[in-house]
Write a protein that binds this DNA or RNA. Sequence first.
DNA 1: GAGTGGTCTAGACCACGAG
DNA 2: TCGTGGTCTAGACCACTCA
Lengths: 247, 247
Amino acid sequence: MAGNRYEEIADDIRQEIRSGMLKADDRLPSEPRLAKRYAVSVPTVREALELLQNEGLIEKRHGHGNIVRRPLERIVYTNGRSAAAYSGSAFDTALSVTVTSSEITAEDRLSALLRVTRGSRLTEYVYLSRQGESPHSLARVYVPCSVAVLDPPPVSVSPLGDDIRDLLAASGVETTATTERLTARLAVPAEAKRLRIGTSTPVLAVERVSMDATGRVVEAALLVLPGHRAEAVFTTRSPAKELETTG
Amino acid sequence: MAGNRYEEIADDIRQEIRSGMLKADDRLPSEPRLAKRYAVSVPTVREALELLQNEGLIEKRHGHGNIVRRPLERIVYTNGRSAAAYSGSAFDTALSVTVTSSEITAEDRLSALLRVTRGSRLTEYVYLSRQGESPHSLARVYVPCSVAVLDPPPVSVSPLGDDIRDLLAASGVETTATTERLTARLAVPAEAKRLRIGTSTPVLAVERVSMDATGRVVEAALLVLPGHRAEAVFTTRSPAKELETTG
DNA sequence: GAGTGGTCTAGACCACGAG
DNA sequence: TCGTGGTCTAGACCACTCA
């Protein structure tokens, strides 16, 4: 089926995980040991493990071992709101979200995203959600200080920073339009470290920009969602039906 | 900066491409030659080239060489419609789209997607768009035979199969809602071969489902867009304003 | 300090593509 | 046929984790 030796090995270990022979938090045999078991060299084993890492089945820990991951909650991002599938009782640990905030200066990318002049002051909120020990998703939310200066919510229930817009609304800044730009790319090293994934793991990257009625950007966010546990769902109703009614 | 040797090498070659020292369609020196130039081993060179392949800068051709890619048009998928950025005159070759169709039987995944019973008959349209010699994007569109049997458009201008919905509308089947589900993953071998990308290249995968007013699924599509040249943009207006009017 | 994964070496052999 | 990339080997050396 899979002509490559490392794919066969990955299939075999995947089977051991799915069948329950290897359980969550178990440590795989060391890479030299796996190489012996499958009668291959260590780099071949490592290629197989890389596949499993990219699927979210194992976590590689330098100096420690290759660990079977607990199944994590899927991130569902629906029409501009996070709706992490709180799939009832399927998970023994709930999501926890930590938020840190700091004031920063808008540089090239952020000034373009928020449509403010370079050097403007912004508040940055960094949302890191965890499920048990495992980092789950990463969101960075930016609000120009000229729009509002909010108290940072020390503990949030919105892993992707949705509550910022609610806080803005509470202080009189209404969001009337949100634009999301989604791309698929590999994790950059800093993200990989934070989310405990590999640099060959695909992520769904979301740029979210919220505007008020005057077209002013009131909030922007950069979301990084590991590909193997994230999906974005958008529903559009009655498209292209305005052709007849437009004058 | 980048502690890894292969990242330094990738940076160097990237620079040569961006600066114009290496031009589109140029063949890089062979991998052993590059290894000599950088005083590293061939596998290290190959890791560097893999990075460049994943960024869409080069194309690896087995038995032939590593080729500098022409810059390709970006795929912009906006609110359920493809709006490939025909960026004016920047590209010397236009997109061409070839469509092939065949009648198939709905299996597990497709029957669930289209909400038809397993074994139902479907028409499958495969859209492969190319820019010059390079495959650009891949779309598979499915229409249940119970909904309509359309003439396949032999040449299309919609690289992502949008015209199917127009054809459906022309035959009296109106689409009133479209749901897109987007994920980031690595290309599977079959896709990698068709799109001439690598199996470590991230793709933006889109599942699109279109329904008519009765909730019947009239069309579904599976889109595969190479991550380095695709983005999906969704705009939502006045969200969460119905809270006060709902009883 | 013992054991682990991370990076890299210097080859071998096979499969593919073009002349 | 020959040069290319694709896969794999059998190590070396370093960096990290944990007892």
